[in-house]
Amino acid sequence: MKKSVRLYHMIEYCNENRTFKLNDLMSEFNISRSTALRDIKEIEALGVPLYSNTGKNGGYTTIGKRN
């Protein structure tokens, strides 16, 4: 899958799943941990507001109401 297409699908995934973990992205898109982290940084730069929670039960949350 091309990177641009994957990023588009990741943005859709973030909007559908308000909270998710890095492992969720890795399994959903069949990508490595480092690729998932790079992609998260890129979709944040594109304007998707994400909040990261640290710790054992951490993950990511999409901030705000998105239609």
Rank of each mutant, 00 (worst) to 15 (best):
N17T: 07
I63E: 10
L37C: 07
A36M: 12
R6E: 01
E16C: 00
G58M: 13
L7N: 06
T35K: 09
S27D: 10
E42W: 13
S52N: 08
P49K: 15
T54H: 06
E28R: 02
N67Q: 04
E44N: 12
Y60V: 12
F20C: 00
R18K: 05
I63C: 07
C14V: 03
R33D: 05
N57S: 14
K3S: 08
V48P: 14
S32Y: 06
R38G: 04
K65Y: 12
N30Q: 09
Y8W: 07
K2V: 05
V48Y: 14
T35A: 13
L50C: 09
R38C: 06
I11G: 00
R18F: 00
T35I: 11
Y8L: 09
M10V: 05
S34K: 10
R38V: 06
E16F: 03
R66W: 00
L25S: 10
G58N: 09
E42G: 11
N17K: 11
K2L: 06
R6D: 02
E28Q: 02
E12I: 07
I31E: 14
P49C: 11
I63D: 06
S27K: 09
K21P: 01
S52Y: 10
V48R: 15
L25I: 09
A45P: 08
D39V: 13
E16V: 06
A36W: 15
I31V: 15
R66E: 00
V5M: 02
K56T: 14
M26S: 02
E44P: 14
A45S: 09
I63Y: 10
G47H: 12
S27Y: 06
H9M: 05
N53R: 09
R33T: 11
L46K: 14
V48I: 15
T19C: 03
L22F: 13
A36Y: 10
L50V: 05
G58S: 08
I40M: 13
F29W: 08
V48E: 11
T61N: 07
Y60S: 10
V48F: 13
T61K: 11
Y8V: 03
G59R: 15
M26G: 05
Y8N: 02
S52C: 06
N17H: 08
K56M: 12
I11Y: 00
D39N: 08
G64C: 01
E16R: 09
H9L: 12
Y13C: 00
F20T: 01
L7Y: 00
K21Y: 01
A36K: 13
R6H: 01
